[in-house]
């Protein structure tokens, strides 16, 4: 009898496992079940520590409704990527965050974009300090037609961030060091910024942005005009900068969004379709439109 029990032991183990297995075959339906027609934002738009809080943002270019009811938080110390096809409203949204749309006459923005308890669309807000607080880097590097030194020093000087030349020098050196440009340009500070290579110019623009102590950096396709080496340097820089700043990046390169961002937002024809962690968006997107776009099914 004892022998018999010993021989039957493997079976007993199976019996124990079988009892548990009944619970497991409850499979949820596919995540990508939200149909193409649904235009409600899918996913969690809020974050635990928001820096900017956007609610029902709408943008009109004359009669054209370019952005519809976008509600999303930009978190502290996060990199959030905005992706989507051309004309989907991602750049328009980015430009709302530091009122760059003010420069377009027919543009009208509604809804609230709250930062530090104030709506940045409030007419009483001065856009100059706002744009220092929310800096921007553009697609094409656009250094001022001045020396490398002056490119960085210009912002701190007009914002009164340095009391004297020593302090200004310090800001210039720190900014250049943070962007990894110092070693490359320390002997060429008096040469024109435009004499640098494309990648260096773009890093100079980022150095210029961080010289005025921003809290948020907006990047509109910052690497689309750069080679892979310069791109890698910018991406590495973003990774370092996000410990101090929130970064919002608009990019057409899905791989770049996947590489650098913590969260990803997908826009489609003026609607914010889906927001989620970058891991979730690129492995199990919930909305069919997101999945079709990121997997290259544009039909």
């Amino acid at each position: 009898m004892t022998d018999n029990a010993k021989i039957a032991q493997p079976g007993n183990q199976l019996e124990r496992r079988r009892g548990d297995r009944r619970k497991y075959a409850r499979i949820h339906l596919s995540r990508a079940t939200v149909s193409r027609d649904n235009r409600q934002t899918v996913g969690k738009v809020t974050v635990a520590d928001p820096r900017i809080h956007c609610t029902d943002v709408n943008v009109f270019y004359g009669g054209k409704h370019a952005l519809r009811n976008v509600t999303i938080d930009i978190g502290c110390q996060e990199i959030i990527a905005m992706i989507g096809p051309s004309g989907c409203g991602k750049s328009t949204f980015l430009r709302c965050l530091n009122r760059m749309n003010d420069t377009i006459e027919c543009c009208r923005v509604t809804g609230s974009i709250m930062m530090d308890g104030q709506d940045i669309n409030d007419k009483s807000i001065d856009v100059v300090p706002l744009r220092a607080k929310i800096g921007m880097v553009f697609q094409k590097p656009n250094p001022f037609p001045k020396s490398v030194y002056e490119n960085i020093a210009f912002g701190p000087r007009i914002h009164g961030l340095a009391k004297n030349k020593v302090e200004l020098d310090e800001i210039v050196v720190t900014s250049l060091k943070r962007t990894g440009l110092w070693e490359e340009v320390k002997d060429r500070l008096d040469q024109p910024g435009t004499s640098l290579s494309g990648g260096q110019q773009q890093r100079l623009c980022i150095a210029r942005t961080i010289a005025v102590n921003p809290e948020v950096i907006l990047m509109d396709e910052p690497c689309s005009a750069l080679d892979p080496i310069a791109t890698a340097k910018i991406e590495e820089l973003m990774d370092q900068l996000c410990t101090d700043y929130s970064i919002v990046i608009v990019t057409h390169s899905m791989q770049q969004a996947a590489r650098v961002s913590h969260r990803t937002a997908y826009f489609h024809l003026g609607d914010l379709i889906e927001v989620g962690t970058t891991e979730q968006i690129f492995t199990t997107p919930a909305h069919q439109l997101t999945e079709d776009y990121i997997t290259g099914r544009f039909g």
Binding site: A32, M254, Q255, A258, F282, T283, T284, P285, T290, E291, I294, T295
Partner: peptide, 8 residues
Amino acid sequence: CPVARDLR
């Protein structure tokens, strides 16, 4: 560089 359902 597949993603989403292609990657899965």
